[in-house]
């Protein structure tokens, strides 16, 4: 992906779409990438209309808050569901655990700031 200069002029290539799909853990059929790339460029072309908008003098963080309530809402929280419910939902369950195919152990460090596996 080519870097942008704060604007969004560059088109997206099929390889870009491949990388994005991998990041989103999607694996479309090989034939679908060409279509997805065309569509994504079409949509991006449309949303690039935003470039014409003069947004000077507006802090993006403030903007993010604009339409949301600011109150500190510290209420009650949902009921716990028992392990039975977890088991009922889990596609693969054994001995009280949800089970997935084995991950390389070393990558599963205890730090929450680890890389995606």
């Amino acid at each position: 992906m080519s870097e942008t200069d704060g604007k969004c002029r560059t088109g997206v290539t099929e390889d870009d779409v491949r990388a994005i799909a991998a990041l989103a853990r999607l694996r479309p059929r090989e034939a679908a990438f060409e279509r997805l790339t065309v569509e994504l460029n079409l949509i991006l072309e449309h949303v690039r209309a935003l470039e014409r908008l003069d947004l000077s003098g507006l802090d993006p963080q403030e903007a993010a808050l604009h339409s949301r309530p600011r109150s500190r809402d510290l209420g009650t929280r949902p009921d716990a569901v028992g392990p039975d419910a977890v088991q009922a939902l889990a596609p693969n369950w054994r001995d009280g655990f949800i089970v997935v195919p084995r991950l390389p152990a070393l990558e599963a460090t205890r730090s929450p700031a680890r890389d995606p596996g």
């Binding site: 704060g6 969004c8 994005i20 989103a24 935003l50 470039e51 903007a63 604009h66 339409s67």
Partner: peptide
């Protein structure tokens, strides 16, 4: 895919950041 793209490194400001301000 569109949403992942607009949040991804190098594109966030141009798309998501800009859209947040446009929203305001």
């Amino acid at each position: 895919i569109l949403g992942t793209f607009v949040l991804s490194a190098g594109y966030y400001d141009a798309y998501y950041g800009r859209a947040q301000r446009a929203r305001a």
